[in-house]
Simulated assay, not measured.
Amino acid sequence: MRTDVQSFAVAHLLRRPETHEAGGFVVGFDPTTTSPYINYATPVPGAEPTDRDVAGLIAVFRERGLKPRLEFAPDAAPAVEPALRRAGFGTEAMHEYLVCTPATLTLPGAVPDSTAPVEVTAPVGEADYTALDIALAEAFGGEWEPSPEGAARLRRTEESGGAVRFVRARGGGCAGGALCSAPAEGTAELAGVGTLPAYRGRGIAAAVTSTLAGTMFGRGAESVWLEYSGEGSRRVYERVGFRPGGTRLYVSLEG
């Protein structure tokens, strides 16, 4: 049983502006947003919460007017899921995650019919962070609205030891990009890999993913992990060295 990804989840939430620890859970809050995808909880590896612990966790969310929600790797804390189910938590999703190490990382191959190599760059100012926030919002089908707060979170990722990388669109702006958190517990999470529809099929996702993983390895990370949304994206990540690692469960409490 590997616990590095779950240990990372705990350390990552403890970086939030506001945190709460109780009953074997860590909760991370960001007062600039009510998004349940940013304000959520995770168990410490090996946690064995009681029903009272879960009730206390729910209260922490309720008193802030937020939906109780958790993200975690079930294998790292097998007693947690049954306790949450007893309290009425339902499944949002279960995703497999992939892991890359320095030994498996490879450079992406050439894209057929490409006219130029994909050039991956780091943001150099507010305009770049804003353009990336706008592009990722569009790439993910409008799941969130681009905002100054979103651009600021990207900047904080870069400034706090993580990395943000993107590919410029013709005439300026952003064609696609992604971000990677600062390493913790020897690993780092790569997320938000998105490409604008007009630029898909040109190797942007593979180039950005490979560059970010290499950047983290250069900073001492022993591995980088990510989740994928479909078989197409999985093949992209496997081509640059990501391999199956386990599953992560997303649950929330309605009402």
Results as ranks from 00 to 15, higher is better:
Glu159Phe: 06
Arg165Gln: 14
Arg15Asp: 14
Thr211Pro: 04
Ser7Glu: 15
Gly142Ser: 06
Ala41Cys: 04
Arg52Gln: 13
Pro82Met: 06
Glu92His: 07
Gly177Trp: 00
Ser114Glu: 14
Gly186Arg: 05
Glu71Cys: 09
Ala22Trp: 01
Pro82Cys: 08
Val164Asp: 05
Ser233Tyr: 03
Gly203Ile: 10
Ala163Cys: 14
Ser233Gly: 13
Ala169Lys: 01
Thr195Gln: 03
Leu13Ala: 10
Gly232Phe: 02
Glu254His: 05
Gly177Glu: 02
Val236Asp: 07
Ser147Asn: 02
Gly65Asn: 01
Ala169Val: 01
Leu107Ser: 15
Tyr40Asp: 00
Arg234Ile: 06
Glu231Gln: 15
Thr209Gln: 03
Arg16Leu: 08
Leu212Trp: 06
Glu158Tyr: 09
Ala110Ile: 13
Phe242Tyr: 15
Arg234Leu: 13
Arg235His: 14
Pro146Val: 03
Tyr37Trp: 12
Pro49Ile: 01
Gly150Ile: 02
Pro244Ile: 04
Ala151Asp: 04
Thr115Phe: 10
Glu48Asn: 10
Ala169Gly: 08
Val5Lys: 01
Tyr40Thr: 00
Ser223Asp: 06
Leu105Tyr: 10
Glu63Lys: 07
Ala9Ser: 12
Arg156Cys: 05
Val251Met: 13
Thr215Ile: 03
Thr121Met: 09
Phe29Ser: 00
Thr187Val: 13
Glu159Ala: 13
Arg16Phe: 07
Thr33Pro: 11
Val99Ile: 12
Val224Thr: 11
Glu21Cys: 12
Thr247Ala: 10
Thr247Asp: 07
Ala137Trp: 04
Ala178Leu: 03
